[in-house]
Design a protein around this nucleic acid. Structure first.
Length: 422
RNA sequence: GGUGGCGUGUCCGAGCGGCCGAAGGAGCGCGCCUCGAAAGCGCGUGUUGGGGAAACUCAACCGUGGGUUCAAAUCCCACCGCCACCGCCA
């Protein structure tokens, strides 16, 4: 949610931002009108209510016939107040609904355009030349089979398309990745967290996932729960309705959880393997900080993501995601894309977003300083999303016989230097 | 799942139809006292929203949502959460 005062004073800036995202600009005018109506309704209601408060006091003192008379008038007033209050509530609800429809203000530095209009910020590492190694790389599905690490066929049998089993070294690799991620996060000062993955609507809505992203969220209607698509949701909502002390900021959490995604509208896309799946585990970084520190914190999160990929010895590039491809909460987003040899392409493996005060305003997370109480900034970033990292490791570190070398950083966590054929 | 109890400000805790935004205490801030501190004394100390240039003022908030009433922290209903005990399951 953006600041209503900012919206009133800078409607054109908000229109420009909506346009840059390819979203409806007309909401701006509608939201401002609704806000005017809201304030008018408040004035009407409060005037009546004040009158009633004064009046009610005089009733208590009165006696006999006089009192009977006053009670009659009181009833009339009471009815008026009731109507005015209902109108006020309606106006407030409408104003809030419209305000909630607006996405976060774009960072002026974010490239404008659609999915393809990202800007490459840097390349780290060089894609391996398999011609020089004299063999054709196998894809992760084939390698996963040879190593007894990934079983997509049985995943489909039991749960359907986009489900899989991690078995043997595949399962061990997940544990190693998670342990490495969590231990480096703890070293960096993060508080490790295992959050709930079923959340109430308020958490989902507050994080901004019930807008355009709603179709990708699993909903348990019968019990009014949502399955989180990322631990960003329970981590953001962790401090919902709280006032944080500024001395404690930045607060950094590293959440490990399963993530569930419907992947609606992706039929036929990435159907092979485990690039795009309905369920996976992920270690996510999440920061609450002062708004003025958010840009620097975003760079820090990006750096931790880069450190992780470098430790995995994966060639990758960093892109500045274009406006049309940002989530509604993000003002700016950087993706790290790993080189996937058999696709001859860079594919997103991690991603970090600066949500400024947008989520905090929706979730009512504030800080208190001498200026008063105001919303904090929130940021998130992937440390490791398991399936895609497994894909990147298997494909990039494979040998001609199908065995796979374990990156040095993971060896202590795995107790082996190579994945052997089964 | 059953029974009983509870949910009030930063915290503890009183209030159980109007005089209650709410006693008292703790904490915190400022001042006095002191060489300095502690103790003591005095004053102050919530959030949100509206109006106003401001001083200030009005409204709402006692778990949440409804209801009764001229008037609700206080009465009624539902829900949520916490605690205790019993039953069942892991």
């Amino acid at each position: 949610m953006i600041d209503i005062k900012f919206l009133r004073e800078n409607p054109d800036q908000v229109r420009l931002s909506q346009k840059g995202r390819g979203e409806d600009e007309n909401i701006v005018t509608r939201a401002i009108t609704a806000d005017d109506e809201r304030r008018a309704a408040i004035v009407t209601f409060e005037a009546l209510r004040a009158e009633q408060n004064v009046f009610s006091k005089s009733v208590g003192a009165a006696k006999g016939d006089e009192k009977t008379l006053l009670l009659e008038r009181g009833k009339e007033l009471s009815a008026k107040v009731k109507i005015a209050e209902a109108e006020k509530v309606e106006a407030e609800t409408k104003a809030r609904e419209l305000l909630m429809l607006l996405s976060n203000l774009l960072d002026p530095k974010a490239p404008i355009g659609g999915e393809e209009d990202f800007v490459v910020l840097e390349h780290i590492g060089t894609p391996r030349d398999f011609k020089k190694d004299n063999f054709e790389p196998k894809d992760h599905v084939e390698l996963g089979k040879l190593l007894g690490a990934i079983d997509t066929e049985r995943g489909a049998k039991v749960s359907g398309a986009r489900f899989y089993y991690l078995t043997g070294v595949g399962a061990l690799l997940e544990f190693a990745l998670v342990n490495y991620a969590i231990s480096s996060a703890v070293k960096a000062g993060f508080i490790p967290v295992i959050p709930p993955v079923l959340v109430k609507p308020a958490a989902m809505e507050g994080t901004g996932f019930l807008g355009q992203a709603a179709e990708n969220v699993f909903n348990l209607e019968k019990d009014d729960f949502y399955l989180v698509g990322t631990s960003e949701v329970p981590l953001a909502a962790f401090h919902m309705d709280e006032i944080l002390s500024p001395e404690k900021l930045p607060l950094r959490y590293a959440g490990y959880s399963t993530c569930f995604r419907r992947e609606a509208g992706t039929y036929g896309k990435d159907t092979r393997g485990i690039i795009r799946v309905h369920q996976f585990d992920k270690v996510e970084m999440f920061t609450f900080c002062k708004p003025e520190d958010a840009v620097a914190e975003h760079q820090r999160l990006l750096q931790w993501e880069k450190d992780f990929l470098q430790a995995m010895e994966i060639p990758f590039r960093v892109i500045d995601v274009a406006s049309g491809d940002l989530g509604s909460s993000a003002t700016r987003k950087f993706d790290c894309e790993a080189w996937i040899p058999t696709q001859n392409a860079y594919r997103e493996v991690t991603s970090t977003s600066n949500c400024t005060e947008f989520q905090a305003r929706r979730l009512n997370i504030r800080m208190k300083d001498d200026q008063g109480t105001k919303p904090v900034a929130t940021l998130n970033g992937t440390l490791v999303a398991i399936p895609r990292m497994i894909v990147a490791i298997l494909e990039n570190h494979q040998n001609s016989d199908g065995t796979v070398n374990v990156p040095a950083a993971l060896q202590p966590f795995l107790g082996m230097t190579r994945f052997e054929l089964v």
